[in-house]
Structures are given as structure tokens and as C-alpha cells.
Design a protein around this nucleic acid. Sequence first.
DNA 1: CTGAAAGCGCTAACAG
DNA 2: CTGTTAGCGCTTTCAG
Lengths: 346, 346
Amino acid sequence: MTLTGRGIPHGTTQRTTIRDVAEQAGVSVATVSKVLNNRYGVSASTAERVQQVIDSLGYEASLVARSLRNQRTNVIGILVADLEPFSTELLKGASRAIHGKGYELLVYSAGGLTQDHVGWERRYLSRLAGTLVDGAILVTPTVVDTPSEVPYVAVDPHTGRPGPPTVDSDNLNGARLAVEHLISLGHRRIGMICGRADLESARLREEGYRLALESSGIDVVPDLITLGGYDPGLAEGASRQLLGMADRPTAIFAANDLMALETLAVANELGIRVPEDLSLVGFDNVPDAVMAEPSLTTINQPIQEMGRLSIEILLQLMAGEEPDELHVTLPTQLVVRQSTGPANGR
Amino acid sequence: MTLTGRGIPHGTTQRTTIRDVAEQAGVSVATVSKVLNNRYGVSASTAERVQQVIDSLGYEASLVARSLRNQRTNVIGILVADLEPFSTELLKGASRAIHGKGYELLVYSAGGLTQDHVGWERRYLSRLAGTLVDGAILVTPTVVDTPSEVPYVAVDPHTGRPGPPTVDSDNLNGARLAVEHLISLGHRRIGMICGRADLESARLREEGYRLALESSGIDVVPDLITLGGYDPGLAEGASRQLLGMADRPTAIFAANDLMALETLAVANELGIRVPEDLSLVGFDNVPDAVMAEPSLTTINQPIQEMGRLSIEILLQLMAGEEPDELHVTLPTQLVVRQSTGPANGR
DNA sequence: CTGAAAGCGCTAACAG
DNA sequence: CTGTTAGCGCTTTCAG
């Protein structure tokens, strides 16, 4: 098939390959390769001539072809289900940690089509591992028991030990703090919007909710516990369900900020004032939580730090060292903002 | 070289290839490939047997090998110099725009080592284009006149037309609004920390600063204009320089939020109160600006929308269509928060 | 010092 | 329906 077949858009040209360089320099591709990689065995004059052609053509070796040949690529992969506030915060931390280490970062996003396909991370990992990346960080993977061709670290995984090294935060205690905060404000009817059933973090946040209620002697009402899947779309339905109840809750704890913000939007739409009529607590403390109106009370998770740590552990793994810690859990804190207030006797 | 050579860390295994599958299923690699890609010409029974081996081995075709063979990869590349607030906000918008389009997103970060290497985006683009990605978005590229093997869109580029389609925001007017705001508060001695000299956005923001001053009849003082390169590290020096002056400015306009926040940190350290002793305006309105204490007055740029739009234009390009608009400039607005206040007669 | 040749993992013609 | 073969762009022995 020739290029003529496809519509060639806007300044698109044929790829320049090592062969083009070789021909134009009047040498073999092997020689060009040697120049490219600073290998010995090329005379200075030849090297210079080849280099000139390379420069004039603006040639750059294809990452793909090179990766296929070499076992090392100097690229670290970060596999995410989607580029949302949590994962992008993590990226910032990872990026800072990688500076000066001589690695490049390759973020691969499933483009949000992971809801149906459990195990995306395993498939993505095998797609990239061994050929494109030397190591990887899996963000919120649902399956991590797979052996892999490269070392990897799981952030906020489905389940902990045994398996690869993991980094997460204290979800149980965080959720507890959130709900205790609501209780201390006088709330008794507290709804919950849960996270993705396949993630350990979601399970722990729900457990924290239950524990907080129980230790205050408040009954856990099944109807007040809804499914949000960490997904704004699902959370919308869940919040409508909660807020549409005859005896609706005076407070809601959402398992992440995105869902809490969605709940806020629904409340606004229904004319329910936050925090006067409804108190709202999220989880994560993503930047968007602060930008909301009113700003969101939430549980802080040191997301960037989690990114930094993951890289650190991964680099140790890749160096063949045993990491200092295999499973790190970072602390969480309550951040009180404007979305929570006293229960006003409803 | 065999695998024995490298330290095999923590559960690392040899890569499973199509050959392994073929051997175990007792067929040729061609047949496996056909099954993999749902091609005709495989009997149902063979297909099933092969599929079973694929499943049991957890085999997934290498993206690299596949990309090398095929011209289409269904992957869109986003090339960024670094994963900082601006680029990650952009990613969120791009990610949302790509949902359901059948493409995957591949973000390639130079890992911050771009300061010295101008033209990183051109090199990265040729590394990936044609083999790994079908199209690309270049974020803050310094050179965009390169013809490429795939269509691409430049966000906040070095320079506009002619060249590839571009997406940016109204930098000139934004900067003007920022400085006019300061002037309206009574400030006359207004410092500026400029952006990266190789970016058009930085030039326009400086020009907006000058224009605002001039149209209010305020002299432009060269000493008050410093270089920050959009980089917190450089901005630290710049702000120290400004704040260390005997007759230091009563207000500073930083060409992006990151530098403004750095200036805030320096001011804190020097015991200069914001906004009482110093007013501060940034640019971008990244989430971090709201989280600062005091929260940062800044110029809003619709970053996520820029990401969305870039994807949209790119998809049109890739479909061989002429985009509706080749160069889009989105509006900017002043967002007044707590870091600016009246000049108190110094 | 240089180039021919093999092969990384995969797909697509083309024979059989 | 199945396998053999060539080749994507590159690196690396290994002869010359």
C-alpha cells in the first residue's frame, strides 16, 4: 500500500528513516546506527558527514523500532484508567521525582473505557512491558497478581500483599475522620456514595463510614449507602437517589471529591443549600475541591507524594535492589472547608 | 546476551510472544495473528484453541511490534515538556474529549530536561510519529515549522501562522487586564517576572504589561522587568531581585501562577506581607492558585477547554478534513482573589 | 573502518 | 484453512 491511499493532511510527509540518512550520506545503515549511538568504529570524517545529513534531515530514530531491538528503553510507563484529578496529581509528583534520573515518562491512558473491561491494567502492562517501558506504575489497578516482564508498583490497588509493591493512603482512618466530623456537627442521618467496588480503597472508605457510625451508636441504614463507582456520572444518580428521599440525609460522605462535587451540583439544582441544608464531605483533596463554591470539606491524601514514592520504589526495583518498604500507606487528614456545617435540627 | 545478565527483580518474567502462543497451540504465528485480529481464514475450532492458549497465557500483543508493522495505531500522542499544572489541566480536557472516540492517549514527557534542548518537541515528534502515534498535540513547543509525518496541533506555541493549527488564549489582553487591575488599585511601581523567552505567550504577556503601563502614563522601568522562564526555580531568583531592591515594587505581575506562587513564598520568607505590602497577580488560574494562602489573583485561561479543542481539531485533521478554524484564541479573564490589595502609599 | 546479514515481535501477501 | 515468507526501522555481531 502506498501513501497515496490515505488523505495526507496538512503538511504531512513520509517518515525519514535510517535508510534515507544512509543513502544520502553514502554509507550503510549500520554506520549511521553507530554514529547515532556513539559507537566506536567510525572514522571521524565519516561520522561528521553522517551527522550532517542527520541534522539536515532532522532525523530522529523511531522510538518504536529502537525499543523493539533494545531491551532497555529508559522509559518508565505510568498506566492510568483515565486522566482525572487524582491521576494527574499523581503525575505531577512522579514527574518531579523523575527529574534528573535519566528516564522519560510515558503515560498511557485507557481513555476511560475501563469500566467494562476489568483487568485493563494487566493487558496494558503486557502491551508495553518488555518492549516499550523498563518499568511501570499502575494507578488504581483492579488486578495485580500478574507476573510481569518488568518491575512495577501499584498505587491504590485492588488488594495488597502479596503482589507487587504498593503505595496507598490510610483510607480507613480517613473515612472515619470524615464521618466523625459530620457526627460531631450533630448529623445522624448520613448518606454515603461509595467508590468502585473492585478497589480496596473503596471498600476501606465504606468500612470507615460504618465504623464511625457504629462507634457513635448510630445505626447503619442500608438505603443511605449508594454506589457511585468513583464516577461522576454514576454519582449523579446516586445523589439524586439520596436527595430525593422523603427523609433525606442531612449529610453525605462521598468516597471521592469528584463524586462530592457532582453531589454539590445536584443539590444546587434541587435547591438544597450546602452547607445549610446539606453537609458534604469528599475524599482526596484534589485541587478542584478548593475551587468549588462552597469549597469542599474533604480528606487529604498526599497524592503527589504518592507519585514521588512510587517512582522511588520503582527505581529501586529496576536497579535490582530490594525496596526499603514494600507496602507504604501514607496518612490522611481531615480538611475542613465550607461544605460542612451543623445539622440544624431537621 | 541472555536474561541471566540482568538482575531480575521481583516477579519479573520473560515476555510472552506470539511465538510462545503459536507453539503451545501447535499452529503457526500467522494463524495466531489472524485470531488476534479477527481475520478470516481460521477454522472455528482452531480459533478457539488458539484463543484458549492466549487467555491462559495472558498474552497481549506488543504495542511496539504492532505499531512498527501497522501504519495506524489508534493512539494519539500528547507531547509535553513536563507534567506541571498547566499541562496536566490540559490533559484532563483532552482526555474528556477523547472518550468514546476509539483512541488511546499517550502522554510523553521530556521529564523536564527541555530547558537546554530547544526543539525537544520536534525530536520527540519524529521519535513517535508515524510509528507510535497517528496524530499529536504539542504543548508549548518552541519550534513548530517542522513538517511532520502525522498531523498535529500546537498549544501555546512559539509562534502562530503559518504552521500547524494552533490553540492558545488571549495572552495580550489577559496581561493587560492583570496590570490594569493593579493600576486601578493605585499601584505605580509594578514589577514583572517574564516567561520563557522562546514562547509567544511570554512575549505577549510582557507586551500586555507594557501597554497597560503606557496607556496609564506610567513609565516602563527596565529594572522592574525580570526573567523567570515560567520556571519556579528561575522565578525565585527573579523575585529575590525585585523584592530586594531599595525601592522595591508594590506589586508584581508574574507571567504564570507557578512563578507567582514562588514569589509569594519568597515574600513570606522576607517578611513581606501579601497583599498588605505587596500585591501579586499570576496567570493561568491553575488549581494551585486557589489553594495558596492567600489565594492568588490571576488571569483565567480556559486550559481544559484548550485541551478539548486541540483534540477536536486534531481529529478533524486525522480524518483528512480541513478544520473549522486553524488558529483559535480563547478569551482570558481577570479573577480577583486575595493576593491583591490597594497600594498603601509607599 | 565499514557493510552485509540476522533478528526484535508482529502482520499481510501469497502459496499450498 | 493453514503456513511460509517478507519486511516494518533499528541495532549488533561478524566478515571483509
